[in-house]
């Protein structure tokens, strides 16, 4: 009997590892979910003279995508964002995080601009308020300006179809009902 013990222990471990595979270790719950978006006021990327702030997010369901020209995963995610922007389902706002203005602009003109507009967060202070710890990150914000969901890492086709799109459609319906 005692010779079977290692096998049993191992099989238990495999079960947990198997469950672990389905979980995403990067999916750390954000304390901001269900709370109003943190206040911010930033210059726009394309035009330093114009401002963009929390109040601009109210009144519609929107996505806020945190990106940067130095971020490799953002490049991977970018084509999907461009595609989504063309479908006009939901406005996507950008937050260019810890970047330089020229690099950010060059990046958008080379790869296409899916954003209604991008706010320019040069020193990353707004990113800290939003609890950004890895780029890219995407927030879903409802009509009242409340953060309803946070996606860490590049948006995949699967995440879009299974999580983000249904949530956005639901929120849009809620909004129109109210």
């Amino acid at each position: 009997m005692r010779f079977v013990i290692p096998l049993i222990i191992f099989l238990t471990m495999v079960i947990f590892l198997g469950i672990g595979l389905k979980l995403d270790p990067r999916e750390v719950p954000s304390p901001l979910i269900g709370k109003p978006a943190p206040a911010f006021e930033l210059p726009q990327l394309a035009d330093a003279g114009k401002r963009f702030g929390k109040d601009n997010l109210k009144g519609q369901v929107s996505l806020l995508n945190v990106w940067a020209s130095w971020c490799v995963s953002c490049r991977q995610e970018h084509p999907l964002l461009v595609e989504l922007a063309q479908k006009n389902i939901v406005p996507i706002y950008g937050l260019d995080y810890k970047d330089s203005r020229e690099d950010g602009m060059a990046w958008l003109s080379r790869l296409g601009n899916p954003y209604v507009l991008s706010a320019f967060d040069a020193d990353g202070k707004v990113g800290i308020d939003w609890g950004v710890y890895g780029v890219p990150e995407t927030f879903v914000i409802d009509q009242q300006g409340v953060i309803r969901h946070k996606h860490t890492g590049p948006i995949t086709e699967e995440a879009w179809q299974k999580t983000l799109l249904p949530l956005i459609l639901k929120l849009q319906k809620e909004g129109s009902a109210a």
Binding site: P6, L7, F10, V14
Partner: peptide, 10 residues
Amino acid sequence: VVGGSLLLYA
């Protein structure tokens, strides 16, 4: 690999 070898061991 591990399960098989531990089974053989048992």
